[in-house]
Nucleic acid binder design. Sequence first.
DNA 1: CAAGATATCTTTACGCCGTCCAGATTGAGA
DNA 2: TCTCAATCTGGACGGCGTAAAGATATCTTG
Lengths: 209, 209
Amino acid sequence: MRESQAAEARPYHHGDLRRALIDAASRLLEAEGPSALSLRAVAREAGVSPAAPYHHFKDKGELLDAVAHEGWDLLDGALAKAKKEAPSPEAAMNNLGVAYVCFARENPALYRVMYDTARDREDLPDQMQGDKDSAYCKVRDTLIEAGADAQDTLDLELATTAAWCSAHGLAEMAGFKQFEHLKEACGGEIPFLRAIFRHMGLVPHHHAD
Amino acid sequence: MRESQAAEARPYHHGDLRRALIDAASRLLEAEGPSALSLRAVAREAGVSPAAPYHHFKDKGELLDAVAHEGWDLLDGALAKAKKEAPSPEAAMNNLGVAYVCFARENPALYRVMYDTARDREDLPDQMQGDKDSAYCKVRDTLIEAGADAQDTLDLELATTAAWCSAHGLAEMAGFKQFEHLKEACGGEIPFLRAIFRHMGLVPHHHAD
DNA sequence: CAAGATATCTTTACGCCGTCCAGATTGAGA
DNA sequence: TCTCAATCTGGACGGCGTAAAGATATCTTG
């Protein structure tokens, strides 16, 4: 337990260096921010040479992809929890939004890595958008439960996308100093988020008529 | 006119190297993307040595700040134009949103630099939020013209912030492949944006009653 | 107009970065 | 046990941001 806090005794072959590298990267990311995430620093933190990671990742980008992947899993878990605990579909929509933004605000460096890697390839991860039980589907299903017309698929997809964009936009803007006084006026960060979401109108405007 | 396309003959003293560097940076940004924006590359593009920029900018960050500053000016101009040309306050709100997202979509690298620098200091530039005729004020005033209660300042600020966050979120998400089919279904990118904004409910929900 | 003072630019150098390559070390299968 | 493939190390390369020292042009002052 000399070098930082990798595994125990360090045999020449690490055992699971891939895991150790992702963990080291996450640790560094949380402690020092995204700019400190160099391949060399990660290798240092894991107690191996700068070239060792190349046996587990094609390049630095692939390491970041792996870190981001875990981040999306965490976010998906937070969203699933928020949806499950909501008493009504309308509350679920709001709780999903709040949970999304809270995740981003509590893990700003990770959230940034997640979006930067996604944006670089112009492709959202399947956990969020492609898979059958992706976060996107969670939001869409909640909208239906809240009264959206499940038949009008285009409108439904637009509403889901709109909700997602709103949450992402709020997640990125909530960190700016300019909004501090608004948070105070609302009585804290979460009331502030709920107030903003109210203005964004996440829940459908009574399409059922 | 040998090295790229800086000014004409290059005397030892450049004349206005600061300007030339910002222009070179903008050119590189547009041509090669944000990752190509190294101080050395900018100096190369401007035809000077790697250390020359340090007589005009404290460090690389300050150069990026200057580039971003010009970007915010451009964006503000686009918003002013969108507001002026709108036939009604309601149309103005929608046009502001569309103009915002279009700017971001047409200058993705610049938009990224603008937001990254702002986020690093957790502070939006005065052109956007602080100044008397900032873009924030444009949106707020348009909301009032569209029927928002100018007396309820908290609610008004929340509505303005909500609109802003929505636009930013949409600007960042509109680039993902996943939404291509939605754009097609809507008949193009701009109809898609308008449809999303409709779901976001930018215009106030009839506060005047 | 002469002569410093000052601002601007170049050269050189340092440490860090991502990445590649050759060689050492190890564990697994014949 | 011997061999082989996988894994890790050490060293190297070019590019990066940046600092220090020296060269050169412009400005100021007499």
